[in-house]
Design a protein around this nucleic acid. Structure first.
Length: 697
DNA sequence: CTAGGGTTAG
């Protein structure tokens, strides 16, 4: 059970293992070691700074060079230090090489090795194994091959660990032929590490079947899989059934190993089976941060925010330090939940305290979280402060702006991304085209689609065509939208027909609407959207008989209309409202507030648009129904429950109707409030009588 | 010498 935590993680902060690393010498332990080993002539310089490890001086101790700088990373002047060292020997060279490698300072390790080689100093199996690993990490097949010939010259190629390192290096640099040749040549000397290395290599190159074959062959040849083997073979989820492997693991007792249990639980999560994953998690003996993070991410992936946050609380209570992956997962869980932004903010604060807020995956998760919670300014704040950015950072910001209808800003970010020569992918263009859709930039949207295909050679997916159809539909260019449907290399799915249908409703195209409605109903007979939209259209056109038929069809097929819900957060609590809801304790006050508003709205010249009511009732009733739409109840409550001037944040499970949109614009003026409404499609920022969507949604 | 966890859209 020991020795399974000794591998160095990607980042210094990312595992408890790192804290047990003998090289992470705190000031106290260093002094002790110096004292015990009788090294007196050495000077240690302490520097007071607010970081944990204030030692900055270089120390030559027991044949090991240590230079601990800020954050305990070995960063500067290593060669200079090396010159001062009196004739470093082979062991000292290897020590430093391992130190670099373990810290992921591969470039430094490589220069050290090249220096050693230039000076003709001796090397041994440790030196060569270590530098081969470094070449693999850097994907440097040129130096890798040079080292290979050095292995042959020295005869060390016959050594198992050197041979295995060669296999690893060639696998990582994608040289499958040489790898296989080496592996066959190692027939007599190979051990289970060699097998594991081969299997891992195949998996990382996406060759699942080869990996599984080798896994079987390994057992046939009498090598027993160990915890390395199991933890890696479980990532071949499409080729291996976790249930099957689980049975083998139970027999061998490896399920209590953190690495194996983590891989297993993750395999269950990927099958969508969190319950099974949770059972596996429970059985892990000593859960390390990777295991905790995997379980947390599992809950996040199935949308169980509460579960994810509970796991975070438990690991913190057990004194386990969250790392950047833990934060990015929990923040992502907050982004997906319906709860208040406050929850996400708390984890943001925690990540700052842990000095992990600048980690790429954390800051990108924050951008998305703030954007999805309606706080686009904070999203941009985080984005601006990102020291380095990757594809995901840029995509997150573009999509964020797109969802908020800030089409121009989304495109600005996109152009900045272009100027920085960033690589782009399909998701980038989904964001860009969506931005054009919400901004009504039809031609630009089509142009970006063409650029994506012609200049970036990205194959358009279903989603891209969906975006195009959306682009044209929203602009009322329904013929163009149908043209796309007819020319694209996919059959139109339910989502596309729903888009067309909704656009037909807005642009009053009953004929195409019928067609789209029928398609949608045939694809998803249990989805209420088609029935509701169609009957809506019939109602708007005054075709009450047709509408009654739709109603009947719904009853026959037992399709239930989704109820309109809105919710609002006040002081960390979420209050939800159904249309016509009377259940709230403040109900009476809410309705009198609505009364008062309706008088003031009329004085401001408001005329209710009763086209948005689908029931066959008289106009007076229609007005009453409109005025009790769930978002209005939530807004009335928000106005009562918060001090003047505080912005209101509303979330709605359906799209905002045209009449409510008009009313909310007016309310933002007469009540002097900023109101943000997130519907199923986008964000609406109402301010001083207008909306960020420019009445285009 | 070999291993397990995360993020972007719809």
């Amino acid at each position: 059970m020991t020795g399974r935590d000794t591998h160095c993680p990607k980042s210094f902060f990312s595992s408890r293992a790192a804290h047990r690393d003998p090289w992470d010498v705190t000031v106290a332990t260093l002094s002790m070691v110096c004292h015990a080993s009788g090294v007196q002539q050495m000077t240690i310089h302490f520097e007071t700074c607010n970081l944990k490890i204030p030692l900055r001086e270089k120390i030559f101790l027991e044949g090991v060079l240590i230079n601990i700088a800020k954050n305990s990373f070995l960063i500067e002047k290593e060669h200079h230090l090396f010159d001062e060292c009196t004739q470093p020997n082979l062991a000292q060279h290897n020590h430093l090489l391992f130190y670099y490698s373990r810290r992921n300072l591969n470039q430094e390790a490589l220069s050290l090795f090249l220096g050693i080689r230039r000076s003709g100093l001796p090397v041994d199996r440790s030196t060569l194994s270590c530098v081969l690993k470094v070449c693999g990490c850097l994907f440097d097949h040129v130096v890798g091959r040079q080292v290979h010939s050095q292995c042959i010259k020295t005869g060390l190629v016959e050594d198992v660990s050197v041979g295995t390192s060669l296999v690893d290096m060639y696998m990582k640099t994608n040289n499958n032929e040489t790898t296989l040749e080496l592996f066959i040549r190692m027939q007599e000397i190979k051990d289970s590490v060699t097998w594991n290395t081969m299997i891992t290599g195949y998996l990382q190159n996406g060759r699942m079947d080869q990996a599984v074959n080798l896994f079987c062959k390994m057992k046939k040849e009498g090598f027993r899989p160990n915890h390395f083997t199991y933890s890696v073979i479980l990532t071949a989820n499409s080729a291996v059934s976790p249930f099957q492997v689980h049975a083998q693991i139970i027999k061998t007792n490896y399920e209590m190993y953190s690495s194996v249990g983590t891989a297993l639980l993750d395999a269950f999560v990927k099958l969508g089976n969190v319950n099974e994953a949770a059972k596996v998690f429970k059985l892990i003996d000593e859960k390390d941060i990777v295991a905790w993070s995997a379980m947390l991410a599992g809950y996040a992936q199935v949308g169980d925010t509460e579960g994810a946050i509970t796991i975070f609380g438990r690991l913190a209570a057990e004194g386990v330090k969250p790392n950047e992956f833990t934060f990015s997962s929990v923040i992502n869980a907050c982004a997906a939940s319906t709860a208040a932004v406050e929850q996400g903010k708390q984890f943001h604060a925690f990540s700052i305290k842990s000095r992990l807020d600048n980690a790429l995956c954390v800051s990108s998760a924050l951008v998305t979280m703030y954007a999805r919670k309606g706080n686009i300014e904070s999203a941009n704040e985080v984005f601006k402060r990102q020291g380095e950015r990757d594809l995901v950072s840029w995509n997150s910001m573009i999509s964020g702006y797109a969802q908020h209808g800030h089409g121009k800003k989304a495109l600005e970010v996109f152009r900045e991304m272009q100027r920085n020569n960033m690589e782009m992918d399909g998701i980038t263009f989904i964001g860009v085209i969506t931005a054009c859709t919400h901004a009504g930039l039809v031609d630009e949207g089509q142009q970006y689609f063409d650029i994506m295909v012609k200049e970036h050679h990205i194959n358009p997916t279903m989603e891209h065509y969906s975006c195009l159809i959306d682009l044209y539909s929203r602009a009322g260019m329904l013929e163009k939208a149908m043209e796309i449907i007819n020319m694209m290399p996919f059959a139109a799915g339910a989502t596309m027909w729903r888009t067309i249908l909704a656009a037909c409703r807005v642009h009053r195209n009953l004929d195409l609407g019928k067609h789209a409605g029928e398609k949608l109903i045939s694809l998803q007979p249990q989805d209420s959207a088609a029935y509701v939209l169609l009957s809506n259209m019939y109602a708007a056109a005054g075709h009450w008989q047709e509408r009654a038929k739709m109603r009947k069809l719904m009853d026959e097929r037992n399709v239930k209309k989704e109820a309109g819900y809105s919710w609002i957060e006040v002081k960390n609590k979420t209050y939800s409202f159904l249309a016509g809801d009377l259940s709230h304790p403040l109900s009476a006050r809410i309705y009198s507030k609505l009364e008062e508003l309706s008088i003031r709205l009329r004085n401001a010249g408001y005329q209710p648009d009763t086209n948005h009511v689908l029931q066959d009732v008289d106009d007076e009733h229609k007005e009453a129904i409109l005025s009790q739409h769930s978002e209005r109840l939530a807004i009335a409550f928000g106005l009562l429950a918060t001090p003047a001037g505080v912005p209101l944040q509303i979330v709605k499970n359906l799209r905002v109707c045209g009449d409510c949109h008009t009313v909310i614009k007016l309310i933002s003026t007469i009540e002097q409030r900023d109101i943000v409404v997130r519907d199923t499609n986008r964000f609406h920022h109402f301010k001083e009588g207008s909306c960020s969507c420019g009445d285009y949604w």
